[in-house]
Design a protein around this nucleic acid. Structure first.
Lengths: 132, 132
DNA sequence: TTATTAAGTTAGAATTAATCAAAATTAATA
DNA sequence: TATTAATTTTGATTAATTCTAACTTAATAA
């Protein structure tokens, strides 16, 4: 938790609550889910604070912002390189641990400076599959 | 263009205009960009029609809906398997043609039925890089 | 300790993307 | 040419995110 201080950020109860909720959380929650969870213990927290904190943590490389759900952003406290699969029905996101070789072929780079890369799988999760 | 009929869809001027705009378009436009482009020739078109048509085409596998820009959905008339890179500054999306081996390791599948997969690169495009 | 202040939080309004509902229109066909 | 189911339209609605400006507070230095 001291980690926040080391990022040059002030240690506020809101940030602690958000970090505690995210820590070890493998559900790739949305801002709303984070808000709901934190609001239970800290009813005065606002969406602005949640978004502010998530943006700050993202900039400090403390979390990942996932662009895998077309409806809303998802957040991932696991900043180690890994990939994801999303259920197109219930939108559950699961981790995919695999070491893909994702080097761009020279001819392909188009002059882009690559900052990050990841593989997204879209599919149907077992639970949703059962219902069909 | 007869392609639309073959999908079991009615051939309307709006759909023709949307398809014409998308055909060969390599810019991965958003719904708004499509609307703006089509509205020039067809000023009465509505956003609902654009979204309806895009949704229909997506279901018929005539286009891809890209979840690579956290702000808005992007559409790609190229349904051949390929990947993308987005500039995190100007949000330009470019194609990445490479044949990655993206098979999930058995241990990893978690019971998901995989429908599609793709690699997303995030980076800075040459134009934006020049400005810094 | 306490005062200072820059950083952070808050409520609520605003913006933006996307969806929806219902009435009006029209492409396809018989 | 009439019929009708598919499509389009308008405008309202919802949902996610951002913004603003006033208020509060964690960190620090006196």
């Amino acid at each position: 938790m001291q980690r926040i201080r080391n990022m040059g950020l002030r240690l506020t109860p809101q940030r602690i609550a958000i970090l505690e909720y995210l820590d070890g959380n493998v559900n790739h929650p949305s801002a709303e889910e984070i808000y709901n969870a934190v609001a239970k213990k800290y009813p005065t927290i606002s969406f602005a604070t949640v978004y502010n904190t998530l943006e700050t943590l993202k900039r400090k490389k403390g979390i990942l912002e996932l662009t895998i759900d077309p409806r809303r952003r998802r957040y991932d406290p696991n900043t180690e390189p890994h990939h994801h699969i999303i259920c197109v029905q219930c939108r559950k996101v699961a981790d995919v641990h695999a070491d893909f070789d994702l080097r761009l072929p020279e001819s392909n780079v188009e002059g882009f400076k690559v900052l990050s890369k990841q593989v997204e799988f879209y599919g149907i999760c077992p639970e949703c599959d059962n219902q069909n």
